[in-house]
Design a protein around this nucleic acid. Structure first.
Length: 889
DNA sequence: ACCGCCGGGTGCC
DNA sequence: ACCGCCGGGTGCC
């Protein structure tokens, strides 16, 4: 059982609803009567659906016949309807109809009826029919081959092709169908980020899909009728436009950026969204133009956490009995975060035996916090990519205090919310403002998470009124072809938005290995999807082609003197922490623990980094204790250490300190407080209040690491210098980034750099915007005399910083968060980098640093375990993977 | 429906 | 004439 299957089993209906598990148990020709009373028409070879009509006043056995568009065609003749009604009502079989000929008849027409059911129902069905004088035969191969009357008698269509054949067939098709998706489009001026070529292509494609007046995919106009080339259906009415589609680019290709560009670039009539300039231009809105952006967990963690994950964690020694089943997702996350935090603390102290020593009785807080973090990320993206002098009205429809005003929502340019909020509003019938607005555009971020059509959130999504609809997803098919059905349903791509037709035309043929079915699926997906992977090629060139990235770990041995000092600090630290354990106050003394850790890490880098240790003074009054701890944690943060927020597990943003001396991102902890009646600290369960949160004052320049005459080197600095000197000797043009979390360490490194005549520059969080830009510019300039080394603080600057001039990165000290290190490397290993990038990580042997590396790995494993990133594949799964690979989705 | 069925008109050849 | 036959009216469930 894979995790995704477990989830699927939890949520999906079974048995009767899976037609692919049914077999054809017989068929018979019947008659559709009463044609002249209804408007529904059919074509030769077209499928019809049979619907029981128990309320019919003339015959409670009535079986109504409808065409693909749901228009009634007629009824099944009453004699036949009688046994059929019994079979249908008792779920003995599904009956499907195809009209083989006589499509122009005025009064009645034949219909080939095919009965599908489980083998065990075969006799019951046959007997029931026989009792009414009907004999089921096998003369029709059934609706599987509805699509061509010419071949409907042939048997050769039931060919089960091998996956190899499938792939070949697909590749061929793919070439034929490759439409031009390479046209580029410039975004509106309000977008300040330069789009990459493939993003401009996506923008162009999305824009054309929104503005096009063309018929929806697969429709053609033929002599006054609208003809669906995919299905052979024809209708008189022009089919409804499908404005939108699926943007299924791989992770990291910038789906969000492209969508933001689309939002501002394609408003009405292909014109950009009129944005408020600083100079105030009047915004005239002709109709509701709000865009709903629905987002869920971050891309990497798209698998919801199910109760099975909790069980896994349980196996690691954690009691999960307090976790209610109804919200396993949220609680799983939370549990996960807390565990992570504990792991880090204990393991880094070599106290692994205390691993999960304690656990919180109550983990029901902060249920929604993680969502906030994701939403916050998206808002950040808007801020990052939209020019600062234009105002986009973005409303975060989230949290208990969200304003449920249709008017307010209608006035926004963008409304962000989560699937949870949407469905909880939708559940409270008649009071869902999101469902009362006519949106211009609805975008489902990570749209594949909405995949079970029976789930409330799916229904809520489907009920949204919108002109244009988009699905963003790196993996639109998560688990089964059915996932796609939900997406078609959302896009209102007729007739696939109705389960029966989706099943009969696509789902069943494909699962049975029918190649025409597969072809149709391909055409269908291709027509509405833009999908590129990192390996996709544009005009023969890789979409994103990056040079190699190699990581080396260089172990550093401390000198005897350094080792002595280190051991002494470690012993002291263990003593103090050991006492906290005995007292059971480890979490209340969190700040102290952190401070000890930071000191150890600093010793690994350079003894001169370490601030004078004040010792674990006996606390006086509780207030004094708090003050003491707050000072301590401020010290930790001031050192530049990359601490994590225990709620979002990411690097701290706008850090605040609680009275109980725990540090969180302000938005994260505020959300916790908001969502709880009696807010408690996630780490120690002390009561917390918003007004008691203490702002972290921000990085201050620390007085004097000894950079003057007292300067001495350290083993790590020596290791760095020998690397740099060797590099310079080999190739003087090579540029390097020297990265540390401790800004004062950077001060210290400056000394030998100067001494050896290196030209260097520096970038850290304390620098003014202007100075930073200058530093980057100088460094990027390759002309002689410009710096070849940049001292970079791990968290300096936004994601956008471009340091491609560097091809070597020296990570001076490990971070808690591997992602932070990766992001840092990304600043030079990105588009524009021409050389291979070599990353050297210095790790001090037998030290807290080695433990941190272990933790990084463990954390990765835990993440994988919890989110099922690496899951074993069984056969069904493998089949799914195959299809997914074939479809390139 | 160029059918079937119903029910009124009609009634030797 | 309590039938047969004719031909008009009519027609899903």
């Amino acid at each position: 059982m894979t995790i995704s299957q477990e989830i699927a089993n939890l949520t999906e209906d079974s048995g009767q609803d899976l037609p692919e598990e049914n077999v054809q148990i017989g068929s018979i020709q019947g008659t559709v009567v009463g044609l002249r009373y209804y408007t529904g028409t059919v074509n030769r070879g077209e499928m019809v659906s049979l619907v029981r009509e128990p309320q019919n006043p003339y015959d409670r056995n009535a079986v109504m016949v409808a065409n693909v568009y749901g228009r009634q065609v007629g009824h099944i003749k009453k004699e036949l309807a009688a046994p059929m009604a019994y079979i249908m009502d008792n779920n003995l079989a599904r009956v499907e109809g195809v009209v083989p000929y006589g499509e122009t008849n005025k009064f009645s027409m034949p219909v080939n009826l095919t009965f599908w059911s489980k083998e065990e129902n075969r006799d019951a069905v046959h007997n029931q029919m026989r009792r009414h004088g009907f004999k089921l035969g096998t003369e029709f191969k059934g609706s599987l081959i509805w699509y061509s009357t010419k071949t409907s008698l042939g048997r050769d269509l039931l060919i089960f092709v091998t996956s190899y054949q499938l792939k070949n067939a697909f590749d061929k098709l793919f070439d034929d169908l490759m439409e031009d998706k390479t046209r580029e489009m410039e975004p509106a001026e309000a977008v300040c980020t330069a789009l990459l070529p493939h993003q401009k292509q996506a923008l162009s494609w999305m824009t054309s899909r929104e503005n096009s007046n063309d018929l929806p995919p697969f429709w053609e106009e033929k002599s006054g009728l609208y003809f669906n080339v995919l299905t052979n259906f024809a209708v008189k009415e022009r089919p409804e436009k499908v404005l939108g589609g699926i943007l299924a680019d791989d992770m990291g290709l910038g789906k969000t950026l492209t969508t933001i560009a689309l939002i501002v670039s394609n408003f009405h009539n292909g014109k950009p969204l009129p944005l408020e300039q600083i100079t105030m231009c009047c915004r005239t809105l002709t109709h509701t133009i709000v865009i709903l952006f629905i987002c869920v967990d971050h891309e990497e963690s798209c698998e919801p956490v199910s109760s099975s994950h909790l069980k896994r964690l349980h196996a690691d020694g954690v009691s999960a009995d307090t976790i209610e089943e109804d919200a396993p997702q949220k609680k799983g996350w939370l549990l996960f975060c807390v565990l992570m935090q504990c792991t880090l603390l204990f393991e880094s102290l070599g106290l692994a035996r205390f691993f999960f020593f304690f656990f919180f009785k109550e983990v029901s807080y902060a249920q929604n916090t993680i969502k906030t973090v994701v939403l916050k990320n998206i808002i950040d993206q808007f801020e990052q990519h939209i020019r600062a002098d234009v105002t986009l009205k973005v409303y975060l429809y989230y949290g208990a205090e969200r304003k449920r005003s249709v008017k307010l929502l209608s006035e926004q340019d963008v409304v962000l919310t989560t699937y949870n909020v949407l469905s909880s509003d939708f559940g409270n019938k008649a009071n869902s403002p999101l469902h009362k607005v006519n949106w211009l555009r609805v975008v489902l971020d990570e749209g594949h998470v909405v995949r079970n059509p029976n789930a409330l959130q799916s229904k809520a999504v489907l009920e949204l009124q919108s002109e244009r609809r988009w699905i963003l997803s790196g993996t639109p098919i998560q688990n089964s072809l059915k996932d796609l059905y939900m997406l078609m349903s959302f896009l209102k791509l007729k007739p696939f938005d109705v389960k029966e037709w989706w099943s009969r035309i696509i789902q069943r043929p494909v699962t049975m290995g029918d190649r025409v079915g597969l072809k149709n699926l391909q055409v269908l997906v291709k027509g509405i999807t833009l999908r590129r992977t990192k390996n996709s090629k544009v005009a023969g060139r890789m979409l994103v082609q990056l040079p190699e990235r190699r990581v080396f770990v260089q172990h550093v041995t401390l000198s005897e003197e350094e080792r002595e000092e280190y051991e002494q600090v470690r012993k002291e630290g263990r003593k103090i922490i050991g006492r906290y354990f005995e007292e059971g106050t480890i979490m209340t003394n969190y700040a102290d623990v952190l401070a000890i850790l930071v000191r150890l890490r600093q010793y690994c880098c350079h003894p001169g980094l370490v601030a004078k240790y004040t010792g674990a003074d006996d606390p006086g009054t509780p207030n004094e204790l708090r003050e003491h701890l707050i000072n301590k944690i401020t010290l930790v943060l001031n050192s530049g250490s990359d601490e994590e927020c225990a709620i979002c597990l990411d690097s701290l943003r706008q850090p605040v300190i609680t009275y109980c001396a725990h540090v969180y991102c302000r938005p994260c902890i505020c959300e916790v407080i908001r969502s709880e009646k009696q807010a408690r600290c996630p780490l120690c369960r002390a009561q917390i209040k918003t007004r008691e949160l203490v702002e972290y004052p921000g990085e201050e320049m620390q007085a004097g690491a000894a950079t003057g005459e007292n300067w001495r080197s350290s083993s790590k600095v020596d290791a760095l210098m020998s690397n740099l000197l060797k590099l310079r000797q080999e190739d003087p043009t090579v540029k390097s980034l020297v990265v540390s979390q401790f800004t004062r360490f950077m001060d210290l490194i400056e000394v030998p750099l100067r001494e050896y005549g290196f030209s260097f520059t520096r970038l850290d969080g304390t620098m003014a915007q202007k100075t930073r830009a200058k530093a980057i510019q100088d460094f990027q300039d390759s002309s002689p005399g410009n710096p070849t080394i940049m001292l970079l603080s791990l968290k300096a600057g936004g994601v956008g910083i471009n340091l491609t001039a560097a091809s070597h990165v020296f990570m001076m000290d490990p971070a808690w968060n591997p992602a932070a290190e990766d992001q840092c490397v990304d600043r030079c290993h990105r588009l524009g980098q021409s050389r291979d990038v070599v990353i050297t990580k210095f790790i001090v042997k037998d030290s807290v640093e080695e433990n941190m590396v272990k933790i990084q790995k463990k954390k990765q494993e835990l993440v994988e375990k919890a989110f099922g990133v690496k899951k074993p594949m069984d056969l069904k799964q493998a089949r799914m993977e195959e299809i997914r690979a074939l479809m390139e989705i």
